[in-house]
């Protein structure tokens, strides 16, 4: 198992500078073919998510079918990357998606707060994995991180990774609670060295969630780790990305920061529940030539 301290220190991040850089990605004009390519890419990177207390088997079934076939055939729209649910519903989702190749992702480790003893949090993970989850979205102990317990956070990620086995581990930071970009850069490096396959911004339960500058800091951490070690780590912004325009801005940022290899669901995902609707609308507009009433699109 890897151990603390970090092999690669995290450089300081200047808030004004990183926000200015992020805003430049929003100035790119993405039109025509580029827009079509980008929107389809976004769908293929989407972890279609439902994380409500009211989630039922029926709701999850619906979501799974949507992920398999987001739009009518004539739009040539790819399926989503994964379906993300609570551990309780993993088994059901696995059944729904059987044979499709679309993995089921499960939040775990006491999502969303993480305020449970490690034993229970790890049991949460093994339950989800045993139920068939191929991807685990864990939350870190933010309280522990903020009080300086870097060592503990490192160990809990490493321990979760071990319990995951073959399943991919996504580590959720809840950047809206960590507040500073310095913290985001540090926790990114920490999670990467502790064994994360993906680093993820947020649970979707705290605002602000996946902002462009926060995700940029994480993408830069991933890039620098790749340049130093050759190892590729994925990034998943989640929460607050609701429009096709926003999704394209994230893709522009990925393209210009870390290059083509990350423009793939293997290394970049969107965690979203309502984004797909707007992407469908925009994609249909590009293909049909005019905007259609939202009534023509399914509501998720």
């Amino acid at each position: 198992m890897p151990s603390f301290p970090l092999q690669h220190p995290a450089p300081p991040v200047d808030q004004i500078g990183v926000e200015e850089r992020a805003s430049k990605f929003t100035k790119r004009s993405i039109k025509n073919d580029a827009k079509k390519t980008g929107l389809k890419l976004a769908v293929s990177m989407m972890d279609l998510t439902t994380l409500e207390g009211a989630d039922s088997k029926g709701k999850v079934s619906h979501l799974c079918r949507k992920a398999l076939r987001p739009m009518a055939d004539r739009y040539d729209c790819p399926p989503c990357a994964a379906v993300c649910v609570y551990p309780n519903l993993v088994e059901h989702a696995v059944k729904e998606l059987e044979g499709s190749g679309i993995p089921v992702a499960s939040v775990a480790t006491g999502f969303p707060s993480g305020q449970y003893p490690r034993k229970l949090r790890l049991a949460d993970v093994s339950y989800a994995v045993e139920s068939g989850a191929k991807e685990i979205d864990m939350v870190i102990s933010r309280g522990c991180f903020l009080e300086g317990g870097l060592h503990e956070v490192f160990d809990e990620i490493a321990a979760t990774k071990e319990v995951c086995g073959e399943a991919h581990l996504k580590v959720i930071f809840e950047t809206g609670e960590l507040k500073t970009y310095d913290n985001v850069r540090l926790v990114s490096q920490l999670a990467i060295e502790a064994g994360a396959d993906f680093i993820k911004t947020s649970t979707g339960k705290v605002s602000p969630a996946a902002t462009l500058p926060v995700t940029l800091v994480m993408v830069e951490a991933v890039r620098d780790h790749f340049l130093a070690t050759g190892k590729k780590i994925g990034v998943k912004p989640a929460g607050g990305i609701r429009t096709a325009k926003q999704a394209l801005q994230f893709l522009v940022m990925v393209k210009e920061t870390v290059g083509d290899e990350w423009l793939s669901p293997e290394l970049f995902r969107f965690g979203a529940s309502s984004l797909l609707g707007d992407v469908e609308l925009q994609l249909a507009k590009l293909i049909d030539g005019n905007y259609q009433s939202a009534k023509y699109f399914s509501k998720g």
Partner: peptide, 16 residues
């Protein structure tokens, strides 16, 4: 040596 690839994937269309 690891290097990033900045290629033609998701190439921007002209936006005059």
């Amino acid at each position: 040596m690891s290097e990033l690839k900045f290629g033609g994937l998701f190439e921007y269309s002209p936006a005059p």
